[in-house]
Design a protein around this nucleic acid. Structure first.
Lengths: 214, 214
DNA sequence: CGTACTTTTGAATCGCATCAAATCTGGTGG
DNA sequence: CCACCAGATTTGATGCGATTCAAAAGTACG
């Protein structure tokens, strides 16, 4: 068997309970093939151009998918705090972006070959997988809608309405990474949050952002 | 059988050859259930909130997916010129956006219930369907990347590089609908194109946009 | 206790939105 | 064929909001 760098750098912990959402998605036969481990802040899951061997499920922490532009500037394609990170790599020969943890993260790696085999054999699993992809497509359409807005304030409000729970959203790793996802500079976001708080349209407390009025 | 408004407004043309790309995706058993017809410019395929009965495949023309913001302004979620339009509605109870033709379009409607049945029964079809969704996810990620760029010029160049063929892109319905997809005003896009032409970085001829230098 | 990073505020500048208006275009009906 | 109209295209002027650059203050962590 080919040893991936992943195997060398991370302690296998097959005995760890995998996350419930992942258990609900995967067929029982695949759960034993999962390897859960902790990634440190800054650690890379994969890099653009590499051949995908594992699919990554994020239980806690934060992962960014990013591409490096031709001038070296990095663009955040997606910021994930929970769920499958690299769905689209299932049938890809190469990753089309980098994936890295920007906070200490608990990540379960699932071998892609096993997922493919299970998809062929288990129609119910196929159906769940398609459902997951459908949700991802909708999420991405909403993100496009958000990025089409011109003012930071509109993007932030739209974000809290679509990604938050009742307009409440946990700020685990600060406003800076949120700014990147919203496609604005961190300065602009800080100013926007401060102004919205002054207008009492937004509340920032206990690591949460929360909309107030309606 | 429930008669959808679609059936009343469009002549069935089951004898029409369906498009090759669609034939490649669908199992043979489903091809007879397809209905191809011509939609006029401005005609609506579906509206947000409606229950999905059909999945739409666009052979030629142009379709927009758009949502109406709370202030009545319309935001383009996606602009399609070719391919399946409403993938994500497969398992949805309601459409989450409007779909309308903005140019005379040849569209094939496929009953969703039949697609679902075929997905359960045919693993090879499932695999192709998942592949289609994977490509859509990647396309949307690229669109997010594009919308994260601040200058119109960068968005346009990124668009031509990722959506065009060798930097060449057909402008069937004018720059205005392209401007909406790029998330900028049409004035800004006209000015940007004019300036890039003056710098000889872009060529606009015969209904095509084409990058020049590199 | 020092280092790295986040948060915050300030000032100058730039690009795009916005509003306005003129020209061009294709299609319609007289 | 021409007058006419709706929509696309184009150019201009103005203002706003975000970027950019700069710097200071706060905070976490070894």
């Amino acid at each position: 068997m080919v040893r991936h760098w992943y195997d060398q750098n991370h302690m296998a912990s097959s005995f760890t309970q995998i996350h419930q959402a992942l258990a609900d998605l995967l067929p029982a036969s695949l759960r034993d093939a999962c390897v859960t481990s902790i990634y440190a802040k800054g650690e890379r899951l994969f890099a653009a151009g590499e051949k995908p061997f594992y699919m990554f499920f994020l239980s806690s922490g934060e992962v960014l998918l990013e591409r490096t532009g031709r001038h070296g500037e990095s663009v955040v394609l997606q910021r994930t705090r929970y769920g499958i990170v690299s769905e689209a790599s299932l049938q890809s020969a190469r990753y089309h972006c980098d994936g890295k943890a920007v906070a200490t993260s608990e990540i379960t790696a699932v071998p892609i070959s096993e997922i493919q085999a299970a998809l062929e054999a288990d129609p119910a699993f196929s159906k769940r997988w398609i459902g997951m992809l459908n949700r991802e497509v909708k999420r991405l359409r909403l993100q496009c809608e958000r990025l089409s807005m011109h003012r930071v304030q509109d993007r932030l409000m739209h974000f809290l309405e679509t990604e938050g729970q009742q307009g409440k959203y946990p700020l685990a790793s600060g406003l800076k990474s949120l700014a990147a996802e919203l496609g604005v500079t961190h300065e602009a976001l800080y100013r926007c949050v401060a102004e919205l708080e002054k207008k009492e349209l937004l509340q920032r407390a206990g690591g949460y952002l929360k909309t107030r009025a309606r």
